[in-house]
């Protein structure tokens, strides 16, 4: 059994706890135990806090990393933003002795020290590299015969010079994981485009942020998909809450259910919708739910 500390971040535990639950359950089935990272804070969000003050961002992120260092475990994140912040901070601290010294002075005051002994992982990157689609396929009990619009999100693969996950224009590793659950990853226009939430845009300039989401949703809808699969609670929130806001602001309705990959994986491993918190979303599509039940029923016959 592999062991990782589970860095929750903000949105997953506080808005979409289904993602937290799904992650713990599915990874356990795949032989990875997740340990609570007690007392972790916001990662902190790269777009906002990194934009405010580099040292604050770096010190807070480093504190989160040290919590896991103290447990001797690598960190797992389920969020592209957390991944971006923690990986970048971890790398900067490992590579820049001056910044490390400056930040460690601060950390010392609160009883921590960054040592540079662990790695930061993202659930998708971790599953792709350490588990692999074949092993996931083997763990699937109910192949999810769904057409899905896969959304990689930005900070999972970019900046590529830091992430080293291959092509940023046409990556495949996440598609492979989705297809391992039995779903079909449908190609759609601007698949690699941003959801519009990041960089503090959703917080500060909601309307253009939503317009970017509209661009994505239009293309996803046009591709005739059953749902959206993402790898980031913030993208998740942008698509889910965003659809209700878009309805109000632009009078456009898409009715596309939004699932984090862990939730799709949960379904494929036989867990019911309600245990995975999928119906805690704002967008609840009855037709989709029926389809899921049909797939589950079909598998049970």
């Amino acid at each position: 059994m592999s062991k990782l500390s589970f860095f929750l971040g903000c949105i997953a535990p506080n808005r979409y706890p289904g993602i937290e639950a799904a992650t713990i359950k599915t990874l356990e089935k795949l032989g990875t135990e997740l340990v609570d990272l007690e007392g972790a804070s916001c990662c902190p969000a790269p777009g906002v806090f990194r934009s405010f003050d580099k040292i604050t961002w770096l010190a807070l992120a480093s504190r989160n990393v040290t919590l896991s260092e103290e447990m001797g475990l690598d960190i797992l994140t389920v969020c592209n933003g957390c991944f971006g912040s923690l990986v970048d901070a971890n790398n900067i601290m490992k590579e820049d002795p001056e910044l490390k010294e400056e930040v460690n002075k601060i950390l010392k005051e609160i009883g921590h020290e960054f040592k540079g002994t662990i790695e930061v992982r993202h659930i998708i990157e971790y599953l792709s590299r350490e588990v692999g689609p074949e092993k996931i396929k083997a763990a699937v009990t109910i192949p999810m015969d769904l057409n899905v619009a896969l959304h990689y999100g930005c900070h999972l693969v970019k900046p590529s010079k830091e992430r080293h996950l291959g092509s940023v224009e046409n990556p495949r590793f996440f598609d492979e994981l989705v297809e391992a659950t039995g779903a079909t990853s449908v190609d759609y226009e601007d698949k690699m485009a941003c959801c519009g939430a990041g960089g503090g845009a959703r917080t500060a300039v909601l309307e253009p942020s939503l317009q970017m989401a509209v661009n994505k949703l239009e293309h996803m809808k046009a591709a005739g998909v059953d749902c959206i699969i993402d790898a980031c609670p913030f993208c998740h929130l942008q698509f889910d809450v965003g659809q209700t806001e878009i309805k109000k602001k632009f009078d456009k309705v898409y009715d596309l259910p939004v699932l984090h990959y862990s939730q799709l994986l949960g379904l494929a491993m036989g867990l019911p919708l309600n245990e995975l918190g999928i119906n805690q979303n704002l967008i609840i599509n009855e037709e989709f739910n029926k389809k899921i039940e049909r797939i589950r029923g079909g598998a049970n016959e």
Binding site: G47, C154, H155, P159, C194, G199
Partner: peptide, 9 residues
């Protein structure tokens, strides 16, 4: 400056 979503494209 604040319109950037930091998508890195």
């Amino acid at each position: 400056l604040w319109m950037c979503t930091t998508c890195y494209q």
